[in-house]
């Protein structure tokens, strides 16, 4: 990841430093629809005192298969272990984790603003336009706008709207699409046929066989 450093050893150290830093990771979990599974997954985080930044459950591309999207801030090593613990649950088919550059994601936000304010204050209208907000409902006394995007953008609009009479605000959990994913159909077939697929197991040592095996 870090190319600025010259020399094999130095790169290694800098990578370790990067690895030791907390990052935002998105965990995608394909599951059966089972009562109590949400709790089983949630306690994997709470047991280790890890805060869930965002959690979304939804249907997936495969009928009957649910999809959890969980966002946490953690060190990659910890995330890897968490994903294995999640996958260990009986009703979980598969769990993946991705950094932000490996996914496309969106969050949705709703803002309730006084209609009067929108009409009288040019600033409000300009802001809404600037952030690409769309009106969902317009009533005599209030108007509801929605925006979707990354959290930073949404938070920014909330921040600037605050002093201009924001009545109510809510933001959804993150939903994310994994860039490299080909969907879950094929994987599910493996599960149904009881034929586990040829999973690539990343192992930093096996990738460097020569180093390891010259003792």
């Amino acid at each position: 990841m870090c190319f600025a450093v010259v020399g094999g050893i130095k790169i290694k150290i800098s990578n370790q430093v990067i690895k030791a830093m907390k990052h935002e990771f998105t965990i995608t979990v394909y599951t059966e629809n089972h009562i109590g599974l949400l709790n089983r997954i949630a306690i994997i985080f709470s047991r280790r005192k890890i805060n869930i930044e965002s959690l979304n459950t939804s249907p997936s591309e495969v009928e009957g298969i649910h999809r959890f999207t969980i966002v946490i801030n953690e060190v990659e090593d910890v995330v890897k272990k968490l994903v294995r613990q999640i996958e260990k649950q009986v009703e979980v088919l598969k769990a993946y984790y991705n950094s932000n550059d490996e996914i496309v994601w969106q969050e949705l936000a709703l803002y309730k603003v006084s209609t009067d304010k929108v009409i009288t204050d040019v600033k409000v209208e300009r802001l809404l336009r600037q952030y690409g907000a769309r009106a969902v409902v317009i009533r005599k006394d209030y108007t509801v706008f929605e925006t979707s995007g990354h959290r930073e953008e949404i938070d920014k609009l909330t921040e600037v709207l605050g002093p201009l009479g924001l009545i109510e605000f809510v933001r959804s959990a993150r939903v994310a699409i994994i860039n490299a994913s080909n969907g879950f159909y094929e994987k599910l077939k493996e599960f149904e046929e009881e034929k586990p697929g040829d999973e690539i197991v990343e192992n930093e040592f096996l990738d460097k066989q020569d180093e390891v095996f010259s003792m």
Binding site: T31, V90, E91, F191, E192, P196, D198, L206
Partner: peptide
């Protein structure tokens, strides 16, 4: 004898045994 989402045994990878 089968639960779709549950894999009791991971697949054995021969190259790992070899290693």
């Amino acid at each position: 004898n089968h639960v779709r989402s549950y894999r009791p045994k991971p697949i054995v990878r021969k190259e790992y045994i070899q290693a």
